[in-house]
Design a protein around this nucleic acid. Structure first.
Lengths: 345, 345
DNA sequence: AGTCATTGTGGAATCGATTCCATATATTCA
DNA sequence: TGAATATATGGAATCGATTCCACAATGACT
């Protein structure tokens, strides 16, 4: 009999089989119920039993399966985060902000990177639901009807960052006002002919609102806009170069300043200007939105708008957690921004 | 009877209770076993039953609980990724590489951000184990004995990025050779007095190996190293500024070139030099390791070493997946690097 | 007609926890 | 001393899937 037990023990240690609560119970000579109670500090457990259980846990390094636990309790302590990409400073700052807040409360992040594929945003909502996440934070790039419907129908708490979706908690950047203010600043510096490098308007926040802010402020100051001055790129540096090239070559009516909707676009534009020997800011001023870390180290340092992405992530996490623990009614949160004036204007 | 069923249905739809396989089975008038077989294409299912099941699934939008499934099958299709920080380009590129590879195979990433706290690396190994992840990728910053022991004892497949740990699959950067080659390049450009901005040596790869590469190459060329030239910072830009300040002020024997172990440190150093009116590269050449996206847009564009972090992440994911599906014996993978020559030297 | 393989199905056990409930003992108070 | 309460424990059901097994029905082949 002893031999058999011994052999079983060996096999178990060799195979490094994960321990279960049942085995811990047996070793501590109590029932599974008691182990569970000791583990969760719920109900009564005698000092005697508690000590034996702790000792066994200590020795074996047992950790209860989160798997099994959450099947029963319906809580996974996991939050799904859907991102368009992880490779930008904006995204990683948002994730960092989310993570800081969530980890305080013992939650973890399950990443869902769409790689800019809009279909996948919808797919991932389903997948995360199947994975029983306790909540979802969606860093949205668009407000397509299919996405809105899926997100609204979802039974899981969800917070949107970067776009406004009716009926859902949204954490938004103040794109319109920031854009007007930045345009206004350029005008106050004496610029009258101002170009604009934007992105596609299916991205309502970055594409549409920032453009509207620019256009409205120009109109409010009775300044004309040459169609060539309005360029559209995608979210990368090279696209900024190309846009600036078009601005300089496709019309004789060259602007004296350019407003790029992201730092990357601005950096691309500057890189083209340098190549062509155009002085920044003397011959062409540049301003953008984003306040990326390097914006202060490029030459010249960029005048930009700080959106405080980490704070956005944090705010989204806070909203989500309060929705999970106690129903939450706050629906829209408009974040602050901050104009950072440097040498590029 | 019909009323009761009807009311139950209403309640169910109203409350948006998550459906279970049991309900699907009832609606399709088959057993749970049959639904499961249909879902997984295992065993026999008649065409007739299959159609009814698919119809019900279609109508209800049912998705099986991954939770319950993985409790039974012991597979979660989740990989834990432990990172020192998510806020650097290196990290996000690695994660992007990992994610691209994993998502192809239907795996997802569970993030564990240590925020540079070494204790947490160990904690998270336990937590991820409790969460039953199928594998772990550890982006390591050190090889402390406690960490090595925990990682080695783990019963879950694990791959290390950035450090070499005996007995585990490690994906490493060729820090020593890259460092020697970069130093050699500086020397070939005529520099004899070269300073070095490093980080703490508890980070074996970035701290120790890069320094050794530098020192060995200097020695091989019989070049002396002034102690003040060897500075130590942390992983941020400001730390590069401070190091450069010390290099310039704490000795009269000023170097003509500086090797910074990361782009950020180099950018900080350049920023200080500019402030003091020191010409780069004429009065001080700068070279670093990292090839961050902005390294080509700073002024002057940085000479740096490209480590291809995304490829590193991808390689780690590939190794991990093959270990999970079929035991894997490859133990060490040394990645390529590439010297990028620009104007800062 | 009888054996055998193929196809199809449902019941029941299982994964590893939590939690309700029944029961037993110890303690307190009138 | 007896009733009420507090403390302690284990048994059994449960969460939502998968999977083994037993059993039927059908068709094929001697």
């Amino acid at each position: 009999m002893y031999y058999i037990l011994y052999i079983l023990l060996i096999v178990e240690l060799e195979g490094k089989q994960l321990l279960t609560i049942k085995e811990i119970a047996e070793m501590a000579k109590v029932s599974r119920s008691t182990v569970s109670r000791a583990l969760n500090n719920s109900g009564y457990v005698s000092e005697d039993a508690r000590e034996r259980i702790n000792k066994v846990i200590e020795e074996t390094g047992y950790a209860p399966s989160e798997q099994a636990k959450s099947l029963r309790t319906k809580k996974t302590k996991v939050i799904g985060v859907i991102l368009p990409t992880i490779q930008t400073e904006t995204s990683s700052k948002i994730v960092a902000g989310i993570d800081k807040e969530l980890s305080k409360q013992g939650y973890q992040i399950l990443l869902a990177n769409t790689q800019l594929d809009k279909e996948k945003e919808i797919e991932y909502l389903d997948l995360l639901k199947a994975r029983q996440v306790d909540g979802i934070i969606l860093v949205a790039t668009n407000t397509a009807p299919a996405l809105v419907k899926k997100a609204t129908d979802l039974t899981i708490p969800i917070v949107i960052i970067g776009q406004e979706i009716e009926g859902l908690i949204s954490v938004m950047y103040n794109d319109y006002d920031a854009s007007r203010e930045l345009t206004s600043y350029l005008i106050s510096k004496g610029h009258q002919r101002i170009a604009f490098i934007g992105v596609d308007e299916s991205d309502r926040a970055v594409g549409l609102l920032r453009k509207q802010g620019f256009v409205d402020e120009m109109k409010a100051n009775n300044l004309p806009i040459n169609p060539v001055w309005i360029q559209k790129g995608i979210f990368d540096i090279d696209s900024g170069r190309q846009s600036m090239q078009r601005i300089l070559t496709e019309t004789d009516n060259t602007p004296t300043a350019t407003f790029a909707v992201t730092d990357r676009l601005a950096i691309g534009a500057i890189s083209y200007l340098k190549e062509k020997g155009v002085q920044v800011p003397d011959q062409m001023a540049i301003a953008s939105i984003g306040a990326s870390e390097i914006s202060q180290y490029v030459d010249p340092p960029l005048t930009t708008v700080d959106y405080q992405n980490e704070a956005a992530g944090k705010e989204a996490a806070v909203q989500l957690l309060t929705t999970i623990t106690a129903k939450n009614s706050i629906k829209k949160i408009m974040l602050n921004y901050r104009l950072i004036i440097r040498d590029s204007v």
